[in-house]
Design a protein around this nucleic acid. Sequence first.
RNA 1: GGCGGUGUAGCUCAGUUGGUUAGAGCAGCGGAUUCAUAAGCCGCAUGUCGGGGGUUCGAAUCCCUCCACCGCUACCA
Length: 524
Amino acid sequence: MNKQSFYLTTPIYYVNDIPHIGHSYTTIAADVLARYRRLQLCDVFFLTGTDEHGQKIQKAAESCSKTPHDFVDTVVSKYKNVWKSLNISNDDFIRTTDDRHVQRVKKIFKKLFENGDIYLGEYEGRYCVPCESFWTETQLDDGRCPECKRAVEKVKEKNYFFRLSKYQKQLIEHYHKHPEFVQPESRRNEIFQRIISPIEDISISRSAVTWGIQVPMDTTHTIYVWIDALLNYITALGYDDDMTLFQKFWPANVHIIGKEILWFHGAIWPAILMSLNIELPLKIFTHGWWTIEGQKISKSLGNAIDPLSIIHLYGTDAYRYFLLREVPFGLDGNFSYSALISRINSDLGNDLGNLLQRALTMVEKYFDAAIPEYSEDEDELKESSQNTCDQINKELDNLQFSKALEVIWEFIGKANRFIEGKKPWTLAKTSAHRPQLERVISSLAKAIKDISIFIYPFMPNTCVEIQKQLGILEGDEPPCLEYQQSMRNGIIVKKGNPLFPRIEKEPENSGKETTMPSMNKKTF
RNA sequence: GGCGGUGUAGCUCAGUUGGUUAGAGCAGCGGAUUCAUAAGCCGCAUGUCGGGGGUUCGAAUCCCUCCACCGCUACCA
């Protein structure tokens, strides 16, 4: 059996910053996709990691009197901790300080040099240390970095350059041949426009930076962090000294990135791959940014949200659900506590949690907690479930997470309406209606089992909890993820606590717009 | 400055190649119920479709113009 392989990546996160909502968004989206592909029995390789070199980190380490190594270790452990709390199922975690990465990057750099695509040139201009970016005089904003508005340093140094311009034509061709290379389309158009404009070669080494990977032919230079970082996508697969994974998984099916790094992924990265004569990734999906209560996330405002604080209050699955449901993937979105609470109460509590609760109560009341025998032929929700499944697949194939969730919730609504229509409480009053009642309740139980699988990629813990309460799972076994598989006979339900208890907003006495919830700790 | 995008019910947004009374979710209001987390179900409303002008038998949907906001990019300084 040849399983279809599926390789997806997040960017590797720069460890000068602790993880916030934006990092978690990318990683959660990737995790949902990875879990979805595994459901489809793909052979999935899901990579994330950290970007740890560069002057900015060197300076950050100095400022807290640490060695760069100790400094990055500390931050990396924070990332790993958050990913664990968010239930991220990555298959590997690459650090640019990993020896495997360092050795491979050096080798690749040498290869690029030998191909004639790297040359020694001279750069003169302004450099913004925090942004690790060179700017021309004209790009400066009042003498400051146009991106972060901080002071820039005047530098004049010999640098190694990569012949990006050489690949312009090939890039244009690739964009023509593969209109879906960059998603969404609006981003594709943006970057395409830039690719057809004049392109300059880029400086890819730094002589002033010591915290980095040495240029193999010239140890007075280190490799520009972005080049170092981009290569992670192939060094993690062993390129090019241990090619088993590489041969199996490359080209990547999708790189999921934020819109701020599209130029690197949509132009520089493909050009490097072209130079190495490696196939290009199939797709680059660019998602939007989050604002917090309407404001841009910024260090100066100090409004960055620690995902751990949210999941501590509302649970991992609610957080995962919110981020992917609230905003179409690709667009910007706004995070607010009121919106989060609204989603939890209405979608998760009222629609989903309540559905399970009412169904289980009826199984208890009318059938002594034993789900009546299920017959596929008599399942009145089966067709609707299958349609839902098909539509979810269609949406997730295109990374349309919010649409997939909408489709799932339509089915949840259908199940709720099914109950209203059949009125089991009325059927239960007459023994003559027993067969009908059995049919309704068993169909309902099966529908809920299906729902638990539908939501699994998004809310793996909730999937398990539903299946436990349904009685499908005992102890700590993994959830049943086979959509086609119908339920065993004689399952005894184990109704537990409501899945998503209603969150009551605080009385409006604080005058604050963001009502913080009272105590409502959840474990999933 | 150039290119592109957005502006539709209180909020967030859908609205195919122009065509009968402009839609959904949430919030709000009303109703019938009770299996359920005062949940669910049924029903209801309101919108100068950013402003103005034009094409057309007919435009949210095409054209022009103005306003507001956003993105990419350039340049001046």
